[in-house]
Amino acid sequence: MPKRADLSDTFCPVGRSAELLGDRAVLLILRDLFFGRRRFEEIVANTGLGPQIVSARFKLLIEQVVVERHAYRERPPRYEYRLTAKGRDLFDVLYAMRNWAERWAYEEGETGGGPAMRYTHRACGADVGTSTVCPGCGEPLRYGDLKGEPSPALKAEQAAKSG
């Protein structure tokens, strides 16, 4: 496999962001962090990624100040991972990817006729669909504003991974 070009010093903003976000493991870890999973074992189990990959990507995300590590137990030492402000700002990117996939990535009827993940606005309870502005109250949707409910198909997939 050819070596990937290093884009960390390009002036192109898409190239710079692709240097971090062009990695599937990073995107899956960020997705889990946005869903409130903070512990290493939870993320390994839910993403299906190997522990070595998750560990390496957490190291990268910490170096890039996207994630911080916090101790939650001293003996044995255990840590959880939390998004920084820089990490929380990636919400719009992952939400846009989700919205694109809901429109284009599934075959007809694959998700049972609805979205794989249904989001409601915490502030007013409106179903937001794939909107970036709440259709119920008109507020822009940001990190922490949404409550997600997986479809039956997604619930079954998640249960199969954890079971």
Rank of each mutant, 00 (worst) to 15 (best):
D6V: 07
G144E: 05
P150N: 06
E139L: 05
E108I: 09
A159V: 14
F35N: 10
P150T: 04
R78E: 15
L94I: 05
G148E: 09
G129R: 04
E108M: 09
L49T: 03
I29P: 01
T111C: 05
A153I: 07
Y72I: 15
E139D: 08
T132D: 10
A126W: 00
Y79T: 13
R122H: 08
S55R: 14
R4Y: 12
A85V: 08
K161P: 10
R31K: 15
L28I: 05
P76L: 08
R24F: 07
D9S: 12
P150I: 04
R16Q: 08
G22K: 08
V65E: 15
G125D: 06
H121E: 02
G113L: 06
D32E: 14
N99K: 04
M1F: 06
S162M: 12
K86Y: 06
L27W: 02
G138R: 05
G48Y: 10
G87E: 00
W100R: 12
S131L: 03
R82L: 12
A56P: 01
P135D: 04
A96C: 03
E149A: 14
G113P: 07
A85E: 13
R37P: 07
E107P: 00
R57E: 02
S131C: 11
V93D: 05
G144R: 03
R31L: 13
H121T: 02
R4H: 13
V67L: 02
G114E: 14
F35E: 13
E108R: 13
L21S: 05
R122E: 08
A25W: 02
L154P: 04
Y143T: 00
R4L: 14
P2W: 07
A160S: 15
A159D: 15
D89S: 10
A159C: 10
E110P: 02
V14H: 06
L154A: 11
E19T: 09
R37H: 15
E68T: 11
T120D: 11
E102W: 01
L83V: 01
Y143N: 05
E80C: 15
F91N: 04
P76C: 08
L94G: 03
A25P: 04
D127W: 00
T132R: 10
R82F: 11
P51Y: 11
R37K: 15
G48M: 12
R16F: 01
N99P: 03
K147D: 13
T130R: 05
D92M: 05
D89Y: 04
C12P: 01
T111V: 04
I29L: 09
R118V: 09
V54G: 05
T132G: 07
G22H: 09
T132K: 08
C124Q: 06
P77H: 07
A159T: 13
G87P: 01
A123H: 13
L141A: 04
A156I: 12
K59R: 15
F11Y: 12
R4V: 15
L154K: 11
R31V: 09
V54C: 07
K3H: 10
L33I: 04
G148P: 08
Y95N: 02
F34K: 01
Y72S: 12
Q52V: 06
E149F: 12
A18D: 10
I53T: 13
R75F: 03
E108D: 13
Y119A: 02
F34W: 02
S131W: 03
S131R: 06
K155F: 07
G50Q: 09
